[in-house]
């Protein structure tokens, strides 16, 4: 087994882009999007994770997997700036993260849409907060709503939508603000298997047209293998191992070997 803090620094920065270059046309910037630099996390005095070291390249899709309670969501909240580390630093674009930023949009597992706002007004919200003029807000929001397959539902309230549709709205809302990174906390965890599959395809499809870095948390190994450029396994208070996943991103490619390795890690 790999050493608990299997630091991938050094080998990381180049690999994900090169790995997928043949099958993906996503634009990938040089440099570093997010770095965890000796980060320790916990709630109150209780420590959950110690000395995390991880570099995430711009445009990379990094998936965090781990058993329940391993701290996957905690890592994501720290990257979002919603949770301050006990020790170490989280860096985004080389700058220490000290709070939330529209550069790092977050998609939550639970329905985080504002229930009193229509689909359109939910998607417009990050633009409104950024002070984008009304007309432009409307145009951008509408194009994202159409992009996630919800054209015609702009004036519906969240309560009138199914769970899958609501997650589509969350996806549109997070991307409407043109963030550099999208942090996704088990976004499809509460969906049925069929809807989940649809949402995974939609996500791959939508990400194809952006250059956003993605940090995706899931406990589903198959989901991780489908979406990830790299999979990071969290276990026993640290990073267990980091595995690169070769493309193309289709469900039928056999990744049994990788799958077995991850499951063994877990």
């Amino acid at each position: 087994m790999t050493a608990p803090t299997a630091s991938t620094t050094g080998s990381t920065t180049a690999s994900p882009a090169a790995m997928t270059a043949g099958t993906e046309s996503r634009r990938v910037d040089a440099g570093l999007a997010i770095r965890l630099d000796g980060v320790a996390l916990g709630y109150g005095r209780r420590a959950i994770l110690e000395d995390l070291r991880l570099d995430i390249a711009p445009g990379e899709v990094l998936v965090l997997v781990g058993p329940s309670g391993s701290g996957k969501s905690t890592v994501l909240r720290a990257v979002a700036g919603l949770l301050a580390p006990h020790a170490g630093r989280v860096l985004a674009q080389g700058v220490t993260v000290s709070g939330p930023s529209p550069d790092r949009a977050m998609i939550f597992q639970d329905d985080a849409l504002l229930p009193w706002r229509t689909v359109r007004r939910n998607v417009e919200l990050p633009l409104r907060i950024r002070g984008v003029p009304r007309r432009e807000r409307g145009t951008v929001a509408e194009s994202w709503i159409a992009r996630v397959g919800l054209a015609g539902f702009e004036d519906r309230l969240p309560r009138e939508l199914s769970g899958g549709m609501r997650q589509r709205v969350q996806l549109a809302r997070s991307l409407a603000g043109a963030p550099r990174a999208v942090l996704m906390d088990e976004p499809f965890g509460a969906l049925d298997a069929q809807t989940r599959g649809e949402m995974q395809r939609l996500l791959l499809d939508v990400l194809h047209g952006t250059s956003a870095t993605v940090v995706f948390v899931t406990h589903d190994v198959d989901e991780a293998l489908l979406l990830a450029d790299r999979v990071v396994v969290l276990r026993r208070g640290g990073i267990g191992s980091v595995l690169s996943v070769p493309g193309p991103r289709t469900p039928d490619v056999d990744r049994a070997g990788l799958r077995a390795r991850i499951i063994e890690e877990l």
Binding site: R147, V148, G152, F153, E160, S162, M165, E198
Partner: peptide
């Protein structure tokens, strides 16, 4: 709350039209 099923979601996106329409059933 409006008539369900009248909208045509996802016409522009690849292979999404069908999925969007399917989810409307339990939507409204």
């Amino acid at each position: 709350s409006g008539t369900p099923g009248t909208a045509s979601p996802g016409a522009g996106t690849t292979g999404l039209g069908a999925t969007g329409t399917a989810s409307t059933d339990d939507g409204a």
